[in-house]
Nucleic acid binder design. Sequence first.
RNA 1: CGGGAUAUAGCCUAGUGGCUAAGGCGCCUGCUUUGGGAGCAGGAAAUCGCAGGUUCGAGUCCUGCUAUCCCGACCA
Length: 573
Amino acid sequence: MRVSQLFYQTLKEVPREAQIPSHQLMFRAGMIQQLAAGIYNYLPLAHRSIRKLETIIREELEKKGCQEVLLPYVQPSELWEESGRWGYYGPELLRFKDRKGGDFCLGPTHEEVITDMVRRNLKSYRQLPWNIFQIQTKFRDEVRPRFGLMRGREFIMKDGYSFDIDEQASKVTYKKMYDAYTAIFNRCGLKFRAVDAATGNIGGDMSHEFQVLAQSGEDLILSCNKCDYAANVEKAVTIRKEGTPDSTLFKDMEKVHTPASRTIEEITEFLKRPMEDFIKSILYVVDEEPVLALIRGDLDINEAKLQTLLSANSVELADDKTVLDITGATTGFAGPAGLKKKVKILADYSVTGRENMVAGANEDDYHVINVNYGKDYEADQICDIAFAAAGNICPHCDGVLEEHRGIEVGQVFYLGTKYSSAMKCTYLDKDGKDQLAVMGCYGIGVGRTVAAAIEQHHDEDGIIWPAALAPYESIVLPLQMNKEEVIKTGEELYEQLKIAGIDAVLDDRDERAGFKFKDADLIGYPVQIIIGARSLENGEVEVKIRKTGEKKNMPVRDVVSFVNDYIQKEKGI
RNA sequence: CGGGAUAUAGCCUAGUGGCUAAGGCGCCUGCUUUGGGAGCAGGAAAUCGCAGGUUCGAGUCCUGCUAUCCCGACCA
């Protein structure tokens, strides 16, 4: 491609709405343009990077025996009603009617459609396993799209679904996909961690997220400083060394007047006792059922853990009226004592390992002190519902958890039979009996991965593409466009690079050298081949490596093999 | 959905009730220049987000709407 013909325009200034490096640089490099909130045009440079990533994905998935399909993104409501998600998916699902008044939605994900497609073809155990994927545009009407391609409403996703005869086979598939994802992100030249993840409302009981480590990441991950344990903070197991309470120290529970002390901060200040002495009692409505969650005052309740623990579809804080109905007090004075029969109580391990704690009295302006587990209250379940934090002990070894920020570029789920049972996706086993297919699902955010690569690889001059994702691998820069020899050498090198199978562009614009350099650095071509009149007199040109800034003079005839070797090495081939 | 902000040419901005809406980037023409976003001269490009209102007069003040961004909540 000749730069004079390339459909793009670079900008010196950053549009106000672009906040993070990948968004700013993709905009400045003429890769994307916003059409509406969270909806973007992909210009040729962006599209080339995306296609390169898609090729890597296809190659690695096909190695694992996956097959590609293309499913509709307009989907009828019936399938979503069958799975139950039409009801609780929420406004993120963009719904509309067709001319006949039929309900449809834009597909945010494709479990329903794929399960429907598979059940119509699946007859026998002999057909399985099947592992089917597509690369396609998804739409999720996010409340707050942001950060360019990082969180769009419309976005390109690779989504794959596996169907196996039983749990054991499905987990073998899961492992294969985990390995495929590792290979894919390695080929992209990304630094990432696969972390334990919550499953949210997609369901299932095992999941890993692939997190690209970057400052601007929206996710918080905790990883062990000794072993390979790593988890999303939503999922990270909380291990703390809790003492066993000594019942001989138990004092009698006593009510104290604590006017206008509703929050933990207010009450610790009022009673002059440490936060660890308090039982934070928070009332949730879990699938329309009230649940009182107890946790030590210095910790926070992790709603994702609550959801998983109760296999719930929704977890919401109770409103003021519900709090009054159940506890008999306004919000801020709830406590476990006396509520045993009125509400399900879940206690975090943290509240059961300590004597003589403080809790709300279920009466306005009163708390109770010397509250002890087993004596003054009991819970239906003692469990881990706390947010883990940096400094916690690793659940797998004696290491300590450290905090990182990550961008979730992929996630793998073991789904079990959630969708196959809801939608009757069955096969006949050896004995001629109906069995549910066991499913997994696997996603990669394609645009987000490209953006994540930029987040991880850029400097003040622009993008530094990993060779595998670069829209073009090299640029030929003839510097003096009034010198015939320079132009001719540029044309020749450009042709030779293409013949050698290297993606190259020729900057044939009649621009000054500095202008071309700035553009080349901004767009981030991994290799620049700089042709200047002076070195050309010695038969040499200069090759600059974008990643290191290193420049090297070499004879014209050596350039193609040098570039080829470098690119191959960078791509890990 | 709560809180905050913004909307002037393709992009970044100025314009604080008064003459023909100004500058930079980018774009076009010519000259000049050719190793880090050069210089000079000329030029095209704006329904000042939309709709009402106040006023002799509105980009500027008021009301409503819309869009976009930020924080939070939310998020397979």
